[in-house]
Design a binder for these strands. Structure first.
Lengths: 268, 268
DNA sequence: TATAAGCGCTGCCCCAAGGGGAGAGTCAAG
DNA sequence: CTTGACTCTCCCCTTGGGGCAGCGCTTATA
């Protein structure tokens, strides 16, 4: 029994285009080719081979790999190595996609959270903050160096990040150059590693003000919040915090006019 | 400050080829192109955009998708939809690769098992078989219909298959056309579904003989095993089993001369 | 036996996301 | 002014085919 390419295509569920390609690549050669007309005819053995090719394709082998396999081997026990290799490839792909999925998920979660609460409109507020687990990287230097700290943290924590980036300020006064700062992230869990300390950050009562606009103009908001504190004669605690509710994102830099930074000064 | 394409390539870790492609596709257009020489020059804003593009590429967006996104949007909160869609895509890919991985794993496991025991060389043996959980699809018909049964089972069980394909024979005698057969697979777990019954198959003592060669010649092995049983005056139980130690595989049909089929006749 | 519908053939262009290289022009430093 | 490093455009190649044009072949029916 011999089949024309159309019949064979229906039998094997391989497109005619694919069959011609496989012929050209000498992966699946028709049992008979009419020399004068060029018509391809396939037989039962071709069907068997086509099935093998289809399965290997499902298993994500490339045509080049398939060609090698079907030329050299004719039994599963002979291609154990290749199967093991392929499985490793696939596990790698899975791991990679899982990382991507988690990264995207983090962005989605944070953005959704931001959308939920349009926050009481930039007024000073007294509130309770809960204790949380954080991973931070304390450093001395300029404020502009903090970005690197966040980069380091994000790379090492990746999947465990559980909230918005924050900075802790250990100086009582404003320092231009030699500030004692700790960029940090809330995390689900984690261990201390090179330069990163994971620990509980105690909550408590704080005075909070959300600053809207570029970070360079945050001084004005600090002025407001301290004048409020002086008025009320509160005693402040160290460290104070900045929570980056909305800043340069993972994907876009965004518009600095819309950045939101919450200042939290803790009091006794 | 403006950068030549080479400098910009080093800054952004994007290849020159890619940069030229992105220019052509109007995804990342240099801030300045010298009209007479065609030299491309990039600026700081290009760096920002390049970072965005890189991140989106890491997240598995195509250039076409990226183009749409960067033309229309400039903040993460605006592309939540796209991120959610992309995450779905990625979850699908993960699920698909996981299925492939499990399928390959099954083949590897079975082949490794086959390699381990070259089986006592095709002699009649009395042995104990343990109770196992199986999923089967009992049917009446010709032996040649059994293949379809296995296909159905494999498709529905997929990941839960835990051993070699078997057939249970419920007839005391040989039947050509109307045999009462149950193709089945050992499984890890499972529930009854359309036409598939999952249950424990009791173990016990059996007379076993491994038949080597094409299935069509299995009659000779049956003759041997029954003459042994008669000699010993054992009382046989129903159903008897055939275990397909090595038959047509998932990938290759293999050579029928090397097929191995174990006949198990259970006795009291 | 003629004819038309339906197949099949080759050859060409296309997709994504670039890689490699040829041949020619340009830039910057000595 | 030269030289070496850089950049330009153009073309071909990759994977696994899809789509179409223009032609020839087959086969059933009139």
């Amino acid at each position: 029994m011999k089949y024309s390419i159309g019949e064979f295509s229906r039998i094997t569920s391989l497109s005619i285009k694919s069959l011609r390609l496989y012929h050209e690549k000498e992966i699946l050669v028709p049992s008979e080719v009419d020399k004068s007309t060029g018509y391809r005819y396939y037989n039962e053995r071709n069907i068997e081979l086509a099935r093998t090719i289809k399965v290997l394709k499902e298993y994500d082998f490339s045509l080049a790999e398939i060609k090698e396999i079907i030329i050299e081997f004719s039994d599963e026990s002979e291609i154990l190595e290749q199967l093991i290799e392929k499985k490793k490839d696939i596990e790698k792909k899975i791991a990679n996609y899982k990382n991507i999925s988690l990264s995207i998920d983090l962005i989605i979660t944070i953005e959704k959270e931001n959308k939920m609460k349009p926050e009481n409109e930039f007024e000073i507020e007294e509130k309770e903050v809960e204790t949380m687990l954080i991973a931070g990287s304390r450093m001395k230097g300029k404020y502009s160096d903090v970005g690197k700290g966040f980069g380091l943290l994000a790379k090492n924590l990746g999947r465990e990040i559980n909230g918005k980036a924050m900075s802790l300020y250990y100086d009582a006064e404003y320092k231009e150059n030699d500030a004692d700062i700790e960029p940090c992230f809330p995390v689900r869990k984690g261990k201390d590693t090179e330069g990163i300390s994971v620990r509980e950050l105690k909550g408590g009562k704080c005075i909070s003000l959300i600053h809207k606009g570029p970070y360079e103009q945050i001084g004005e908001s600090y002025r407001k919040i301290f004048s409020y504190i002086n008025e009320k004669s509160y005693t402040t605690l160290i460290p104070s915090r900045e929570v980056y509710i909305k800043g340069p994102g993972m994907i876009f830099k965004g518009n600095p006019k819309n950045y939101l930074t919450e200042i939290q000064i803790f009091i006794q």
